[in-house]
């Protein structure tokens, strides 16, 4: 057990066989994360945000691997002009990874099936220069209202917000035209957010992991179906559980027309694992990347890039 973490079953202990330095992993998981904001480049440049923070006397450090991220030692400035103007969005460093890996371009058709509350949606919109078509979907009405208010504050105008089960999303209202890119950032058991939410593991059960893995498979399969050949799907979670990561990729590699492709990450990471608790997965799952909290002093994260082949 690690101090501060509410974890009656020692869930993190389950992942020790996957980790290179167990002690460093445990220590990092028990340390709170600094507040981080991402610059909303629809409304301001990083230099303008820096000038705005200077203006308001808010101290910050620039994050070296991502020019649009600022660490805020004094916490998240919800009550600041930078926030009021929609110039910044509170977003953990690793959470800024998958939209960059997806790399949407201005004018493209992009789908964000599990979009709420909108940190990655607003980032995708900015990467698209707020042009093209960005469909942001969620199944939960309360979470959709958070998504809408975040998109509005950020001045996102290329987004269509929809409410449906991402496993059955229909392209019919869009004349059946497939997407260029899809960001499948699924609901998960969230172990990687332990530094932000010390009680993230309190409700953890293996049954939940297995249940949510079924949902993840359905969402990823549908995403691959709706993407044009040559298009890109990024799959991401904030869990360490191979059941929700490599096992989901292994499933879609068998059922869908897609392959895993290697990609560059500006953060230190480890390859996906091809074996877990007696199961073996397609060896290309090693092209996925695992980000552990102790390597870059961030939250935990999992990210894979798929190219659709037919």
């Amino acid at each position: 057990m690690t101090d501060r973490i509410d974890d009656p079953r020692d869930v993190l202990g389950r992942y020790e066989p996957l980790v290179d330095d167990v002690e460093a992993f445990r220590e990092a998981c028990a340390r709170p994360l600094p507040a981080v904001v991402r610059v909303n480049e629809i409304k301001a440049t990083p230099d303008e945000v820096a000038a705005g923070f200077d203006d308001e006397g808010i101290p910050y450090e620039r994050v070296d691997w991502h020019g649009g991220l600022f660490r805020l030692p004094e916490g998240n400035p919800g009550g600041s002009w930078a926030y009021v103007h929609g110039w910044v969005y509170g977003q953990e460093e690793v959470s800024a990874v998958p939209a960059r890996v997806l790399g949407p371009r201005p004018g493209e058709r992009v789908f964000d099936p599990c979009a709420a509350p909108g940190s990655k949606t607003t980032q995708l919109a900015a990467l698209m220069d707020d042009s093209g078509l960005l469909i942001a979907n969620d199944s939960n009405l309360g979470r959709l209202s958070a998504l809408r208010s975040n998109a509005e504050r950020c001045g996102v105008s290329n987004v269509v917000v929809t409410k449906s089960d991402a496993r059955n999303f229909s392209l019919k209202p869009y004349e059946g035209t497939p997407f260029d890119r899809v960001l499948v950032d699924v609901p998960c058991s969230c172990e990687g957010t332990i530094r932000k939410n010390p009680d993230a593991l309190a409700e953890w059960t293996l049954e939940h992991v297995e249940g949510v893995a079924g949902v993840q498979k359905g969402i990823l399969e549908r995403a691959v179906e709706m993407t044009r050949p040559g298009g890109t799907v990024v799959y991401s979670t904030c869990t360490f559980a191979p059941e929700e990561n490599e096992a989901v990729l292994d499933h879609v590699l068998r059922t869908g027309d897609c392959e895993l492709v290697p990609f560059d990450l500006p953060l230190e990471s480890r390859p996906g694992v091809a074996e877990w608790e007696g199961e073996t997965y397609d060896p290309t799952v090693a092209r996925a990347r695992r980000i552990y909290p102790h390597h870059n002093d961030t939250g935990g994260f999992f990210c894979a890039k798929l190219e659709v082949t037919a």
């Binding site: 509005e152 917000v161 209202p173």
Partner: peptide
């Protein structure tokens, strides 16, 4: 509402661009 693109009209969605 203003939308920085186009979709077929009419359409039933939660939001389209911004108010």
């Amino acid at each position: 509402w203003a939308f920085a693109g186009d979709v077929p009209t009419p359409i039933e969605v939660e939001a389209l661009g911004m108010t």
